[in-house]
Design a protein around this nucleic acid. Structure first.
Length: 380
DNA sequence: CTCCAATCGTACGGTAATTC
DNA sequence: GAATTACCGTACGATTGGAG
């Protein structure tokens, strides 16, 4: 099997536990090394990183086994990046601790000179000896200033920790819309790339990697590789529903996608990447079912029956918002019909319904020939 | 507090329309 | 013709809210 030996060092100590052990890796056999040395080592390793999906990868390893070699390389690189993050935090903490110790010892020395402990309180000074203690007060003042600066640093560090993606230079944080893509929202629009031609180009660049050439025609950008390619390279089994995809494979895909297309960093928890991939593998499965090289699970046989009931001549169009409001109206009607005193029918929904259903309903052709819903609807 | 029914949110594969 | 998008009905787990 390929060149896995190149990626897994037999002499390397195994990463037994969590991130706490991160500093101790194969390139750093001596755990007694200090933090800054360890950080240097990790940074040096990071500089040597190669893209697991690049041509450089192929030239480095004789045989690429997509399921193993790339995954191992990717994971090792992820560990290095995580190691660096930990070491940087550790170094900052050590520096702060050192500073704190110095201040404490200075204060203790000053206190010893005057036979008073000044490390815990400042300024409880006898008025009669004010003149005599001027130098001490000065030192105390200095210590307080240093202490304030230290607090600031600690606060800044804490703030930095809260920003989970330190690599991201994208300030925007676009949350995922409620509902499901295609049903309740349009991926492209929710990504904010549905506005103009430039937006469209950006979207296509992510999805199918088509970028404008000199003649302004869209051509394939083979370097970046598209979402489809990345899906396969990340060992995503498209024959299985997305929910069954291992979290590790998903994370790997997200990370590479973020690297390829930095704009994806702005979508909270990689929802855009996820929706794009879900959409792709869903369509791919469907294609397989049609062509007959993939067997549809029996649990979804009912869908076939459902579609048979549908009115084939009914028009289809972008009516997501309309459908949403209709659904609310239908539920309200059903509740009324039942005579249910569900006093707490969400007031917010009722208000929305009153606004929308009146204006949307009359001019619309209904998708289905089904009459029961229509009846319920009219009865309201 | 517990039980239970209603409701909500999400996921699934289906078809049709649209885009490339 | 393949890929993408919009909309469909159903299943299912989680949440909510009323009743006892």
């Amino acid at each position: 099997m390929g060149s896995n030996k190149n990626t897994t060092s037999h002499t390397a100590p195994k990463r037994v536990s969590g991130r706490g052990k991160a500093v101790h890796t194969e390139n750093q056999p001596n755990p007694a090394k200090n933090t800054s040395d360890a950080l240097k080592t990790v940074n040096a390793r990071i500089e040597r990183h190669i893209d697991p999906y690049s041509d450089a990868m192929e030239s480095k390893f004789d045989i690429i086994d997509n399921d193993k070699t790339q995954e191992i390389v990717f994971l090792r690189q992820s560990h290095d990046l995580a190691d660096r993050k930990i070491l940087e935090t550790q170094a900052a903490n050590e520096a702060l601790q050192k500073e704190l110790d110095e201040i404490k010892s200075a204060a203790a020395a000053a206190g010893a000179r005057f036979g008073t402990d000044l490390t815990n309180h400042g300024g409880d000074v006898d008025a009669g000896k004010a003149q005599e203690k001027n130098p001490l007060l000065e030192e105390l003042e200095k210590a307080q200033v240093a202490n304030a600066a230290l607090r600031k640093k600690v606060q800044a560090l804490a703030d930095k920790q809260r920003i989970h993606d330190v690599d991201s230079d994208v300030n925007e944080n676009v949350p995922r819309a409620a509902g499901s893509a295609g049903n309740n929202f349009n991926i492209q629009n929710e990504m904010g790339l549905g506005g103009n031609a430039n937006d469209r180009e950006q979207y296509l660049a992510i999805m199918v990697c088509r970028v404008p050439n000199q003649d302004n025609n869209l051509t394939l950008d083979l370097v970046k590789r598209n979402m489809h390619d990345l899906t396969h390279q990340a060992s995503i089994n498209w024959e299985q529903p997305w929910a069954k995809t291992p979290a590790g494979a998903k994370e790997k895909l997200f990370a590479v996608a973020r690297e390829r297309h930095p704009i994806l960093k702005r979508y909270e928890n990689d929802w855009a990447t996820e929706e794009l991939v879900k959409q792709y593998i869903k369509n791919k499965r469907r294609h397989g079912y049609r062509k007959g090289f993939l067997e549809r699970p029996a649990q979804y046989d009912y869908l076939k029956t459902n579609s048979a009931k549908r009115n084939p001549s009914a028009p289809r169009g972008p009516r997501i918002a309309v459908r949403r409001s209709k659904k609310v109206a239908e539920k309200k009607a059903a509740a009324k019909a039942k005579g249910k005193s569900k006093a707490k029918l969400r007031t917010k929904q009722v208000v929305e319904d009153d606004d929308e259903s009146m204006s949307d309903e009359p001019g619309l052709s209904r998708d289905r020939g089904g009459s029961e819903e229509e009846d319920a609807y009219e009865s309201s």
